[in-house]
Design a protein around this nucleic acid. Structure first.
Lengths: 230, 230
DNA sequence: TCAAAAGTGTTTCTGCTACACCCATGC
DNA sequence: GCATGGGTGTAGCAGAAACACTTTTGA
């Protein structure tokens, strides 16, 4: 089967930078390519956009296929269209980034296109195929900017989390230390955290209170002009 | 001539929201389509991406061809890929927005694809072809956010401008009134305006001092951690 | 001398920053 | 009883917001 057009068309793909957080820091999900070009190299999960498929749906489908992940926060990042970015010819890619709670998912598995899929700590990312290093850099920059003015950090945590976990997450994303008292004051002052009156289990010392991000409350307050700023 | 591929490919275009400022408020540039679909309707300037053309270069070329504008501030906005957005079939568009000093250019002219090109005040934009109303909305939102933390507003003014013009511009973009004294204090405090020791001509009353945005000074200060915030 | 816009300081308030100790728990 | 992270308040400071009058110029 083949498809013919009057004018040449670039191929169109989506690629996705998937972030997760652990107490050790931020991680991203990479797949090892099972086919040329860059066979054996690590790359962002992604693939060609179907003809009847929305761009975001394409990104979600690729993630599902290559890594088993579904239902995560996903946001369009930037479209990369450099002429030489793919040796197979002109390929334009719409890049997305995703934020997931790593605990929600089984360890990812590869598929036919992807031999293997693995988490990498952000400070030990291998060489990446194509221009994926540039895309990753762009994604980190965006995430760093966005956590400051939008409540997206919660997407990286389990539903129930301790304030110290949230603070650590922010420190990892922003790359700077934050004052514990000021951080807690700020978060509590925003009035968007629900105190669950539960405590984290299994600690060899005092256990931490657990909170949940109250999204509907956040929305209501945001309407009224409150603005999230960390 | 025709081009054949193993898998179907969406067509790829760029479209551009061109903003300019006048004392009457913000304006955008629209072209009247000379060909189907939506023949006769007003639309954003744009067109198909060439096979050996960077995305941004495509947007610049289309603007040059359809409106005569060159060398303006241009930034990628978002990629719109809705399945039904173009009746001719699947067309994905990478949207950009541009900021220009209207005074630098002759009144725009149409070309073959565009019967006519005209400026429209933002509060009297006609019905737009395709999903261009959505793209416009997105661009306004982006511009509104961006002028607060980056010195892009200057792109809409002539090289030499009065502080009151800058303030009016900000009021138009943000849709709110600003205090004159606080605005001047803030801008002067940033120390990125060069006092030209000139005054605006042709006023039937006291003439205003002219300033120029000192980009290299801005960059130097930005490096050192100063942050532009209005 | 009037009309129109340019230009200028001070006070108040709010929100950010800096900073150190006691508490609860499991071992 | 000790090691470990959890949890708390206050004072000082900087930047934002509110606010009104004088100056300059041309007609």
């Amino acid at each position: 089967m083949s498809f013919t057009y009057e004018y040449p068309r670039p191929a169109l793909t989506t690629d996705c930078v998937v972030f997760a957080w652990t107490p050790g820091g931020l991680e991203i999900l990479l797949v090892q390519r099972g086919i040329a070009p860059y066979e054996g190299s690590w790359a962002l999960p992604g693939g060609f956009v179907g003809m009847d498929e929305e761009l975001e749906a394409s990104a979600r489908r690729e993630l599902q296929e290559e890594t088993g992940l579904t239902d995560m926060y996903l946001e369009q990042l930037f479209t990369f269209g450099g002429i030489e970015r793919d040796p197979r010819g002109r390929v334009v890619t719409v890049a997305y980034y995703a934020l997931i709670d790593k605990g929600r998912f089984a360890p990812p598995k590869g598929d036919t296109d992807a031999r293997d899929a693995r988490w990498f700590s952000l400070d030990s990312v291998p060489e990446l195929a194509f221009d994926h290093a540039k895309i990753l850099e762009y994604a980190i920059e965006r995430l760093r900017a966005k956590v400051r003015y939008a409540p997206v950090g919660f997407e990286l945590l389990p539903e129930k989390f301790a304030l110290s976990e949230l603070q650590q997450l922010y420190e990892n994303v922003l790359g700077e230390e934050l004052d514990k008292r000021n951080f807690r004051k700020k978060l509590m002052g925003l009035d968007i955290l629900l105190d669950l009156n539960e405590r984290k289990q299994e600690a060899p010392f005092r256990s931490a209170k657990l909170y949940r991000f109250d999204e509907s409350k956040y929305r209501a307050l945001a309407e009224k002009g409150m603005n999230f700023r960390i």
